[in-house]
Amino acid sequence: MNQPLTLFTDKLSAAWRFTAQNRKVSVGIAVVAFFVLMAIFGPVLVHQDPTAFTEDLLLPPSAAHWLGTTQNGQDVFAQVVYGSRVSLALGFIVGILTTAVSVVVGVVSGYFGGVIDELFSLVTNVFLVLPTLPLAILLAAFLPYKGPLTLGIVIGVTGWSWGARVMRSQTLSMRGRDFVEAAQARGESPFRIIFFEILPNETGLVAAELLGTVIYCILAQAGLEFIGLGNPSSVSWGTMFFFAQNSDALLLGAWWWFLPPGICIAVLGAALALVNFGIDEIANPRLRTERARKPSLLNRALGTSQTSAQLQEDLA
């Protein structure tokens, strides 16, 4: 029984080695860590109330206000730091929950096949094809309470389908592998096979899904808050956009108001995407730049694991 555990720690240390070696992954993780630390400890260090009105109206960046002030004299730097809390917390929590849903739907659908698969796939594909933002707006407009819960539900409902689709096709290709058939022959329960045999082999894919979904959640949240579907009394990057847009920050030339939250979102999103690419390179050796363009025959004879490119083909 100890074997899976040592296997797991082996994998973990291998993953760590790769993290340290792969520049994309290490840079990405460092940037994400910076934002997480800012969200957790930033508000403790910044002694300015992000919502307090002051006399300093619409000032450009200065020593007193590092990123200037808003039309009501609120400190933009304090807003960015406090706002990271709401934006990151919602992004990661909703991202994790949404990924969990898509993993369960995708794996169950791919493993069982038959009627379950037909049904799950149909629902997944319908949600995949419905445009996310209009659906999110439809849901958010009718939910009576504006706030993180509404945003979370809306983003989750619109964001799970892509991951489910990818997980399904990967599971489909796993189902016929020897170790799964061996487990079935041993009489293992489907639950055990799915979560202890198949899922551990899809860790890289799940991680990639998680990162992609977190990016989606942060972007979607900012978009929905921008058009006024968030809670305007809470400070987040998206509500900063909302107030900047509604106060015509642009026409007042107040670039310091709408520039910082956007840069934060873009840098954080790019960092997450970098980690994602690194993971893709682990799973798909062909994408590694240090290799020659064409893998050697030996390499091909050994057979690489299913690549994201092949996966995309499966989606066709």
């Binding site: 990016i215 972007l219 670039w255 709408f258 956007g262 999103g269 995407a273 970098l274």
Partner: peptide, 20 residues
């Protein structure tokens, strides 16, 4: 990497920057 960064930018923010 350049396009990775671009893809992580919210559309409406890019629009705001261009407009500005």
């Amino acid at each position: 990497p350049v396009f990775t960064f671009l893809s992580a930018i919210p559309y409406f923010w890019l629009a705001l920057i261009f407009l500005y």
